[in-house]
Design a protein around this nucleic acid. Structure first.
Length: 260
DNA sequence: AAGAGTACCAACCGCTGCAAG
DNA sequence: GCTTGCAGCGGTTGGTACTCT
């Protein structure tokens, strides 16, 4: 990008940060930003530095609001229910912190990411946690999941959502559930392309039962496994189907329910 | 009490996706 | 279809608080 002039909304990646304040925010800056958001609302972050009279880039302003000043942010420690949900969502979504945070009312992506890296990563993947902490590669960490092209982050919702569930996440992006004799399963209800993209971007070992596969097989119980790197799935095997649903069941646990 | 090591978390950086022109 | 600018994401860094010796 060719930059000919400097404006407060420009950050390093967009141009230059020369002359812009960096580092910790002062209470004065906080109050200015808060007042600006109160007056103009969220959004138009490129205008915020000018409106608030801050010598900060728009990214810094947005981050400060989103991660710290927003009054909806929870300050207390993660509860056991939140941790449980976080674990299951991470298993499902990988490091899509904003998506995960969207299902944890009052938590920001940064909160979730920090909590994961400091409290949970070590329990899940000791090698990865060690690497994160020490910046040392002493063993091969689990490869991060491929980015999901289909799923776009949902706007934060701070409603007291009792339906915080993995299935709700899926339904928001076009996936739903159907039930079979094996239990509830995830389906795609917004077109085969989305479904295929989702499936193609699943993490290793994750298994997806798609409505399209159901339709292709022309029978309610004809389902297929979709492996990403290992073709361990056997769509014709009842044992495989059962184990698959066991996997899904453990993945969703309480979220999985029968649909009449 | 003091220094070293560790944990936490706010903030920064680089990148990507999307929309508008 | 291409370019440009904005919004927002995940990874990473660095300062500080805390704990241990």
């Amino acid at each position: 990008m060719h930059v000919t002039s400097l404006t407060p909304h420009m950050c390093n990646s967009e141009g230059s940060s020369r002359g812009l304040t960096k580092g910790a925010w002062t209470s004065e800056e906080d109050s200015r930003l808060r007042q600006c958001i109160d007056t103009y609302g969220e959004g138009k972050w490129n205008l915020v530095p000018l409106r608030a009279g801050l010598n900060r880039c728009r990214k810094s302003c947005r981050l400060r609001w989103v991660n710290y000043l927003n009054p909806n942010i929870k300050r207390e420690e993660f509860g056991s229910d939140e941790v449980d949900l976080l674990l299951r969502l991470h298993k499902l979504l990988g490091n899509r912190w904003s998506l995960i945070a969207g299902r944890l009312p009052g938590r920001t992506a940064n909160d979730v990411k920090n909590y994961w890296n400091t409290n949970l990563a070590k329990k899940q993947e000791p090698c990865y946690a060690s690497k994160m902490r020490k910046r040392e590669i002493t063993c091969s960490p689990t490869a991060p999941a491929e980015k999901l092209n289909v799923i776009r982050p949902q706007p934060r919702s701070f409603s007291s959502n009792n339906g915080c569930s993995s299935l709700n996440v899926l339904s928001e992006v076009g996936f739903g559930e159907v039930s079979t004799k094996y239990g509830s399963i995830i389906t795609c209800n917004k077109g085969k392309e989305k479904c295929d993209n989702f499936v193609n971007n699943l993490m290793d070992g994750e298994i997806m039962w798609t409505k399209s596969l159901l339709e292709e097989n022309q029978e309610a119980d004809a389902v297929g496994t979709v492996g990403t790197t290992s073709d361990e799935g056997d769509s014709s095997s009842t044992d495989s189907m059962s184990s698959t649903f066991e996997n899904l069941g453990s993945l969703f646990n309480a979220d999985t329910r029968e649909v009449d």
